[in-house]
């Protein structure tokens, strides 16, 4: 299997807080890598670094064999890296369809016909098609999370960074998210997935990365990792599942 993303000794701190510290790992083509860790472990910061929204103090990010450490955010998106935000950031004064179109037209570099078609396709996939003409401002949280995913998918990514889409969902809704994510993998999208819900993390990812204080605590097969001693210690008292 070839390697789509390589993180090499990546570090970023905010003042005294080392949000990501000397972190290294690799992601293979077509895999789903789950990332867990307590609040403040640096998961969102890691995504911000990969997407290019913040720059690391040191370390390297390789995407498909190219060094993208200093590439601008919009360029990384056009190269195939898309992300969702843990706290949704919809374009509130635009309709759902317009929100998604931005992704297809700019991130996906598609013409007007192709972008329309792409939008309809991804809206169907995430179940937002019937609400395409609603203003994003009027969406409840759940639909805002769906919109995050839809916008990201519209850019036609090969690497998708998902930051807690399933938080606050009912069990059957989580099932639905799992289904969508597995189907994305079948479409050839590699996925990094941050989530707190243990059920989802046991069944979704091929491998699991556990972060704590910005560092790699454990890495490997989900079942083994979740049963390991260190992980139990870190999660002791944390609101698991």
């Amino acid at each position: 299997m070839s390697c789509i993303l390589t993180i090499e000794k990546l570090s970023k701190s905010f003042g005294r807080v080392a949000a990501v510290h000397d972190l290294s790992f690799e992601v293979s083509q077509d895999e789903i890598l789950g990332i867990i860790g307590p609040n403040g472990a640096g998961k969102t910061t890691l995504f911000n670094l990969i997407a290019g929204e913040i720059k690391p103090e040191s370390g390297k990010i390789m995407f498909n064999g190219t060094d993208v450490t200093s590439a601008q955010t919009f360029r990384r998106c056009r190269m195939g890296i898309a992300r969702t935000y843990q706290i949704p950031r919809p374009f509130v004064n635009m309709t759902v369809l317009e929100n998604v179109l931005v992704g297809a037209v700019y991130g996906g570099g598609m013409g007007s016909k192709a972008s329309r078609k792409k939008c309809e396709e991804v809206l169907e996939k995430t179940g937002l098609f019937s609400k395409r003409n609603a203003f994003a401002e009027s969406l409840p949280l759940l639909d805002r999370k769906r919109l995050e995913l839809t916008k990201a998918l519209a850019t036609g990514p090969t690497l998708l960074l998902i930051d807690e889409v399933a938080g606050g969902l009912t069990e059957s809704e989580v099932e639905e998210v799992l289904k969508i994510i597995h189907s994305l993998r079948r479409d050839g999208i590699t996925i990094l997935w941050v989530e707190h819900i243990m059920m989802a993390m046991k069944r979704g990812p091929d491998r699991l990365l556990v972060m704590d204080f910005g560092e790699k605590l454990a890495y490997g097969n989900p079942d083994e990792v979740l049963d390991s001693e260190e992980v139990h210690k870190v999660y002791l008292g944390d609101d698991e599942d």
Binding site: T73, F74, Y106, K151
Partner: peptide, 13 residues
């Protein structure tokens, strides 16, 4: 105008 950072993240220059 709505969210410059989010717009850049989905490919807007």
């Amino acid at each position: 105008r709505d969210d410059d950072r989010a717009s850049e993240a989905i490919g807007v220059n």
